[in-house]
Write a protein that binds this DNA or RNA. Structure first.
Lengths: 150, 150
DNA sequence: AATAATATTGTTACAATATAACATAACTCT
DNA sequence: AGAGTTATGTTATATTGTAACAATATTATT
């Protein structure tokens, strides 16, 4: 994410939290900024290292608490297959997204594909299952890597 | 899994490995048996504890190596959202399955839903993405828990 | 059968991810 | 100003997973 988009995103996040009357504190904002700036999934301890450049006394709970908050607000997703965190493209309420994870460049594209969601709902329904959360992560090779790296 | 189904499953696994000319060694079989017998996702260190009842000198690599083998053979799946392992319903080659994970009773149902797979392929394709693996885990409440626990 | 090559297991140590528990500080509301 | 709630500081530890290298067992080759 370039610095202009980053600034926009952070501002959007701030206004979103204001609307919801939840507190995007400086620490939470910093963590969000670190994740968004990287443009890729980031591990919690990688976030911690960067955060410690500003706040030398930051510790694992500092990061994990901020991550909890940001995930609740839909501003950040956790990628279960990578154990890493990613800023959200479209952080409106209630959504989880589906992810295309490139094993080559490490970048991730978030989708919100209605057909996928529908097929999941139908399958769950057929099994008499009440769906709370859905985790969809597709691993492979992105278009750019296919072009660039042979 | 009851003991009859368990025995059938283990025998099937043995014949499968024989056909493929890979070695389902006693250790690997024990690990598979522990997972299958539990009928639910099991953590690696839970497997280790049970394995140590038979083999007191088993260590983490003992378990993880067996798990690697069993996953390669499609006899066991790893559930990324739980960091746990589950015996496979239908261990033919080349499949990954989709999982309905009940947050209430902890049981998991594996599906192989063509519509889900198709929707994933289409979405990936539309994004110019070459799919290698798919991870689909649905968290919620199973039919039985809905009935039994109000 | 003896040897070489490969695959599996033993063993120790450690890395990476995440949480528990309790103290302190800050904010919010009356 | 004080009580209640939310957020942070801090230390220690739990959980999950791997690296690295030695020893053993299996398979293939001569």
């Amino acid at each position: 994410m370039n610095s202009k988009k980053l600034a926009e995103f952070l501002e959007y996040a701030a206004s979103l939290c204001e609307t919801r009357e939840v507190r995007l504190t400086p620490q939470r904002l910093e963590v969000l900024s670190i994740i968004a700036a990287s443009g890729k999934p980031v591990g919690a301890y990688e976030i911690l290292q960067k955060l410690q450049q500003e706040r030398p006394n930051a510790a694992p709970p500092t990061v994990y608490r901020a991550l909890d908050f940001l995930q609740e607000q839909g501003l950040v997703h956790r990628l279960a297959s990578l154990q890493a965190y990613l800023a959200c493209n479209h952080p409106h309420d209630e959504h989880q997204g589906q992810f295309l994870i490139c094993s080559d460049c490490g970048r991730v594209r978030e989708m919100e594909d209605g057909a996928i969601h529908t097929s999941l709902c139908k399958a769950a329904d057929k099994a008499g299952f009440d769906m709370d959360d859905e985790i969809v992560e597709i691993l492979g090779r992105c278009g750019e890597c296919k072009r660039v790296r042979s």
